[in-house]
């Protein structure tokens, strides 16, 4: 099975681009399952289902959505196998710029909004720098010059990636993106590893501490001056 993991900041156009891709894959008679992960609320899974694609919804609630995605990959694969799918598409919530939910043999697709300005590729970190394919959206709203600068910045952060200029409204670039989905490596759940370690989640805030005074914090803490310490037993 090919596993496609799609990451990108909220509002970048992940769902809009994927809806076009799903149509193209269906025309090629591919059997697809999809999973939509979000934190608190989404109706995007209904839009996938409307395209005739069996879709599972996962809400991570107060848990990091990428940790949630990784813990549940097994269940997602079982779901896709149960549907006899060739391709499993996982759309992540992608909130913090420390996340990169791609595994070694998945196809990592980063969807990034060109209107956020040419410094964005420098800020977003591993979900851009470890992606196989970078789909740049909303390029029609900016000038060709700014598009070219944005593209150059993406290549600075991820020189080996394949860049596809896409448009979630018109479907521009989505035929090419759909083509990439069939080229992903074979996924093997047993041996699969993350490309980039997940963000640390090892302090008292992670388990529900709400007081902000420093006397209440335990675990691995990093100070603004760069010094890291362990507080606790």
């Amino acid at each position: 099975m090919n596993v496609i993991i799609v990451a990108g900041t909220p509002g970048a156009g992940k769902t809009a681009v994927l809806l076009h891709v799903l149509k193209h894959l269906k025309e090629q008679n591919k059997h697809i399952s999809a999973v939509k992960i979000d934190c608190l609320y989404t109706e995007d899974h209904l839009r996938f289902q409307k395209e005739g694609v069996p879709t599972l919804l996962g809400l991570s609630k107060d848990m990091c959505p990428d940790h949630f995605t990784i813990f549940n990959l097994g269940e997602m694969l079982e779901y896709a196998q149960g549907n006899n799918s060739d391709i499993l598409i996982v759309e992540t919530a992608g909130l913090c710029h420390r996340c990169a939910p791609y595994t070694i043999n998945s196809l990592g697709v980063c969807v990034i909004d060109a209107t956020t300005g040419p410094n964005t590729p420098l800020k977003v970190g591993p979900f851009l720098s470890t992606a196989n394919v970078v789909a740049i959206t909303k390029g029609d709203i900016i000038s060709q010059a700014e598009r070219e600068i944005f593209r150059e910045r993406v290549l600075e952060m991820n020189p080996g990636c394949r860049i596809i200029e896409t448009n979630g409204l018109t479907g521009k670039g989505t035929v090419e993106l759909a083509g990439c989905f069939s080229e992903a490596s074979d996924f093997s759940y047993e041996e699969e590893e993350l490309r980039h370690n997940a963000p640390f989640s090892i302090c008292t805030l992670c388990v529900g501490e709400t007081k902000i005074h420093k006397k209440n914090h335990r675990g691995v803490l990093r100070h603004i001056n760069g010094i890291q310490e362990y507080a606790g037993e």
């Binding site: 300005g117 040419p118 060709q144 700014e146 600068i149 593209r151």
Partner: peptide
């Protein structure tokens, strides 16, 4: 191919000079 599209504003937060130098590099 060079394109002058319909947009009327820049969104890149940089000086005119830096923009032109960066774009010249890209091209």
């Amino acid at each position: 191919i060079a394109q002058l599209s319909q947009n009327m504003n820049f969104i890149a937060d940089m000086s005119v000079k830096d923009f032109l130098i960066l774009h010249s590099k890209c091209r």
